[in-house]
Design a protein around this nucleic acid. Structure first.
Length: 687
RNA sequence: GUCCCGGUAGCUCAGCUGGAUAGAGCAACGGUUUCCUAAACCGUAGGUCAGAGGUUCAAAUCCUCUCCGGGACGCCA
């Protein structure tokens, strides 16, 4: 089975640089909270000053060496001179002093001074705020969240990214650990799309492999009547659930551990299935050469039907889970009329709205890419026989070889992955491809990319493994360990989502009884907020960290949590509503930035300005947590501001002040809303 | 055994393409609600950035070693 979500501990991985990751990102400061395009404008001004012009330090170099002074009293931006001191033949302190000679602060910069090796500048906050607010407003003009595009970029225009995400195993229920690949992948898809990329999201279903032989053997052993039914019925498994399929597999697997005969029976069943498919694909041109004998055909049909029905049962359940999470998948190739039409007429829209399912089996059953790939590898002498199997020594003797065909003649995970890669390249002409798969499979992808290269497929250089840490559960002995669907220690994803939704429901009943009255609205909100809590919890930290699963932590809606984020968004909406009631429909652009004099307001402006850089960096590094962290900061600042304005209120007696503040509220709301959507979270207007 | 990764506050983490006094959330302690959602806010306390050495004007950040923890390592995927 091709399951990519394994139940093993992942290394915490050094952030492996994605070779193609640099998609024109403008992230600069080391200090995290940057001001993005505001910095560019300031740098452009400073480059005009005599000192900088004489020293050959242009705007790009200036903005590339900006950081935030440790204390606000020092200024709003700091330019570090270290890197330029040597060239100038001066000590950093001297250079800083020299650079500001003849500086004429005007425009955005109102004050400049040298503090040791730094050139600190203070900005005209009104002008800066205006610039930021105008930018947000221009890019987020509409009232609908899908129109909020502040932070979008063009770096990926005309380029295609194929992203391998989720990729669960057929005949196994979705457990909590499947969430990671799904939501990290989904968020990356949205992030890249925001930067202009065409993104093809592919759910590489683990629907092929020896595991299915075991499942089939298990069905035959424990449910002989179902196996019998397969002789005549297309849907032999009756009302079996995914859980039951998994139990059957697990039971058989357990018994096979001590019984080589059973293990062999499992392998045989899969070989029967695969041979049957291959025979179908290689229709005899004239003779009977490729035909199976009657017995092989008969058992092949039985296995095929069991497999196909198990697949159908699983997909039905997956669909339900993905719907909870807000993802939509279409089976590939697309055959249903409506979607086929969309795909033909508006492919961009299709790929934006849907990801696709492509089973591993596709490369064996529908396209004989697997077979051709193997033949190609043999013909090119890239593959060789070893211990009865066909392998590729991708890294010489240093590392184990990549297995193409096992000694029982069945294709391997690796072979199917290679075939899949070739298909994707051929079909979508990808510029980049990434696999969102747990870090413990690092070796597999190293080998995969190398093997493709050995076969002359240069696009392998543009393939990366977006690895992530696994979900750990605390054992009775206090140690943290991976879970196992087989051992029954895994927590079902549905249970987790249900718990989260219920927890939200309870809080609504307690804190917002009025809202709780409206059952359908309450359910909608409880779902969005509950699922959002789980998703945010998953995305807020660097993806390579292992996550120690803790019910209390996931269901704790205080602090850096999904509900906290949504709460701040809701507040910004409700205060806007409040303004409407008091003063009528606001014209945000009329808000007077001069009136935004609070320190909190300035900090929010700076945080808003840094959003595009955060999105661009998250996109290029395949790291949604960069956006999540940026939003946590923004939400926190907004919440502090909310409290700081308690006395006069954001919407108060002074209409001009209220409108000025509402203008900021509008920007916060739209940036927060956009960011949460990029993380795959659903927005709510009340909670 | 070989290879890969991690170790920052009591806990969970951010900061890591070197730069000014290492930051959050949770937990603890103290405070804030007649008022736009307190799922909030403010404050106090809490750190030899695992240890040692090295590079550098400058190291949590780069290099080496040690210790501790985790992962991967041909017929599972």
């Amino acid at each position: 089975m091709g399951e990519r979500v394994r139940h093993r501990l992942a290394p915490r991985g050094q952030p492996a640089p994605h070779p193609l990751a640099a998609d024109g990102v403008g992230f600069r400061s080391k200090r995290g909270e940057t001001m993005g395009f505001l910095e560019d404008r300031v740098a452009a001004e400073m480059a005009q000053w005599g000192g900088f012009a004489a020293g050959g330090i242009d705007a790009e170099k200036i903005s590339g060496n900006f950081s935030r002074p440790p204390k606000p009293e020092l200024g709003d931006l700091a330019f570090a001179t270290f890197k330029f001191a040597k060239d100038a033949g001066l000590k950093p302190n001297e250079l800083a002093a020299k650079l500001i000679e003849g500086a004429k602060p005007e425009g955005l910069v109102v004050e400049v001074n040298a503090a040791g090796p730094y050139v600190n500048v203070r900005l005209n906050r009104t002008l800066a705020a205006k610039a930021v607010l105008e930018e947000v407003e221009m890019r987020s003009a509409g009232a609908e969240p899908q129109d909020w595009r502040f932070g979008d970029g063009e770096a990926g225009r005309g380029k295609t990214l194929v992203i391998d995400l989720s990729s669960p195993n057929i005949a196994k229920p979705l457990a909590v650990h499947h969430l990671r690949s799904t939501m990290i992948g989904y968020s990356i898809k949205k992030l890249r799309e925001s930067q202009g990329w065409r993104v093809i999201g592919i759910n590489h279903l683990g629907d092929w492999g020896t595991g299915f032989g075991k499942l089939i053997a298990g069905i035959k052993k424990y449910f002989p009547q179902l196996a019998e039914a397969a002789k005549t019925s297309d849907r032999p498994l009756g009302a079996m659930t995914v859980q039951e399929l998994n139990e059957t597999y697990a039971r058989f697997n357990q018994e096979a551990k001590d019984d080589e005969g059973l293990a062999e029976a499992g392998r045989d069943e899969f070989a029967v299935l695969e041979r049957y498919i291959e025979a179908l694909l290689t229709k005899p041109a004239g003779g009977e050469g490729n035909r199976l004998d009657e017995q092989a055909r008969e058992s092949g049909v039985v296995n095929f039907r069991i497999w196909e029905h198990a697949r159908e049962i699983s997909l039905t359940e997956f669909e339900r889970m993905y719907a909870h999470l807000g993802l939509s998948f279409r089976m590939w190739p697309v055959v249903d009329e409506v979607h086929a039409k969309v795909l033909t007429e508006e492919p961009e829209a299709f790929y934006r709205e849907h990801c696709i399912y492509v089973g591993e089996s596709y490369y064996v059953t529908a396209e004989d890419l697997c077979r051709r790939l193997i033949a190609d590898a043999v013909a090119n002498k890239v593959a060789e026989e070893s211990e009865g199997a066909l392998v590729i020594f991708t890294h010489g003797a240093k590392k184990p070889p990549l297995m193409l065909v096992k000694n029982d003649g069945a294709t391997s995970y690796h072979a199917r992955d290679m075939a899949a890669a070739l298909y994707r390249k051929r079909h979508w002409g990808l510029d980049e491809m990434t696999y969102v798969v747990g870090g413990e499979q690092k070796l597999h992808f190293e080998q995969l990319f190398k093997a493709l290269e050995l076969l002359g497929h240069d696009f392998a250089k543009h393939c990366t493994h977006t690895d992530f840490g696994l979900l750990l559960f605390q054992q009775t002995d206090g140690k943290w360990a991976k879970t196992s669907t087989r051992k029954g220690t895994a927590i079902m994803l549905e249970d987790l989502l249900d718990e989260a939704v219920q927890a939200v429901r309870d809080i609504i009943a307690e804190k917002n009884p009025e809202l709780a009255q409206d059952a359908s609205l309450r359910e909608h909100i409880a779902h969005a907020v509950g699922v959002g809590a789980v998703v945010f919890n998953d995305l807020k930290n660097g993806r390579r960290n292992n996550i120690k699963f803790d019910w209390d932590a996931v269901l704790d809606f205080q602090g850096e949590s999904g509900p906290y984020m949504q709460m701040q968004y809701v507040r910004m909406g409700s205060v806007t509503e409040r303004f409407r009631e008091v003063y009528g429909e606001p014209v945000f652009e009329d808000g007077n930035a001069d009136r935004l004099g609070l320190e909190e307001e300035w900090r929010i402006v700076q945080q808003l300005a840094g959003f595009p850089d955060a999105v661009a960096k998250a996109s290029s590094e395949f790291e949604p947590s960069i956006v999540a962290r940026h939003l946590v900061e923004l939400a926190g600042l907004a919440s502090s501001w909310w409290t700081a304005t308690k006395d006069t209120r954001i919407v108060g007696d002074d209409r001009e002040l209220s409108l000025a503040r509402l203008r900021l509220v509008n920007a916060i709301r739209k940036v927060l809303g956009r960011g949460l959507q990029l993380l795959g979270m659903e927005l709510v207007e009340r909670m």
